[in-house]
Amino acid sequence: MNLLLGGTSEARAILELLQKHKKRAVATTVTSYGGSLASGGNNLEIVSRAMNESDLDNLVAEKNIKTVIDATHPFAAKITEVAIDVCERNQINYIRFERPKLELEMDSNLVQWVEDFEAAAEAVGSMNCPFLLTSGSKNLGEFFNHPKIKKENIYARVLPDPQVMQKCMDLGSTPKQIIAVQGPCTYEFNAACYKQLNINAIVTKESGTRGGFKEKIQAAIDLGLQVVVIKRPKIAGMEIAEIVWSIEEIEKIIKERL
């Protein structure tokens, strides 16, 4: 049995390949919304919940997992580190699908790179202006609870998941400050969104080619907005991982080795 750690558009593509080649698999997503985007099949089981190390240990033992394909988000560092550790301890084959970084050709003094969410909150807080968060929902508290940031200045673009939207409200957001949409978004959508909200800055993550990263930044720069980019986290244990960079490469592995 194979285990696919998902939560990205690439994971859904890999899921389709597993079904296409009739490979038995368990696929995980963090939320029920993510699970609803993954189509089931005779050879497939979907598990929709966040997992800690104990959960993953139990799952690989219960399902007799022989190979783990980790297609989680580049910023889901914790689950990747847990997966590497679990695979190493249980002598399970670990394959990391790594979303290629986007080499930006744009050279703009509007773009500021920071190391983490705390630094991003500090950077945008010093601007004292309306801004749009396009960096996910997990670290919203870094911004809503920052002493330099007025809550009325925060617009959050998040998944259209009731729990995520409720989290925004619990942190002090109003309905008009929540933009619930399933990405990635086009350049045109981003530009229209920025204009409609009348913001002066955006915060985003270095998500890569399929995360709509370039479209977000280019639209912002073209409108003269400040851009704060959070760099990808460094993940411990990656030196032992088999890293795959393309869907074509992962399909070859699925056909020949799983």
Rank of each mutant, 00 (worst) to 15 (best):
A123P: 07
V244L: 09
A121P: 11
P74I: 05
I217D: 01
L110A: 10
A13P: 00
E105W: 09
V229R: 04
A180I: 07
A13M: 12
K231N: 12
A76P: 09
P130C: 02
A191D: 06
K150D: 02
T134G: 04
E45G: 01
K22T: 11
L4S: 02
L140T: 03
T209R: 15
I95Q: 09
G224F: 01
D222K: 00
S9F: 08
K101P: 12
I253L: 14
A236W: 09
Y94V: 09
P130T: 03
N190D: 03
N90A: 14
M238D: 13
K138N: 13
K255Q: 13
K214M: 15
S135T: 12
L258W: 08
F97W: 11
P233Q: 04
A27E: 03
D57H: 15
M165P: 03
C185D: 07
G141F: 08
V68N: 06
Q218M: 09
A77F: 10
N198W: 05
H21Q: 01
K214W: 11
V228W: 05
A120R: 05
Q91E: 15
Q182T: 06
P147D: 12
N198M: 01
V164S: 02
T80W: 11
I243N: 12
K22I: 05
I95E: 06
L140C: 03
E62W: 09
M127I: 12
A27T: 11
L3F: 08
L133C: 01
Q218E: 13
K234L: 14
L17S: 05
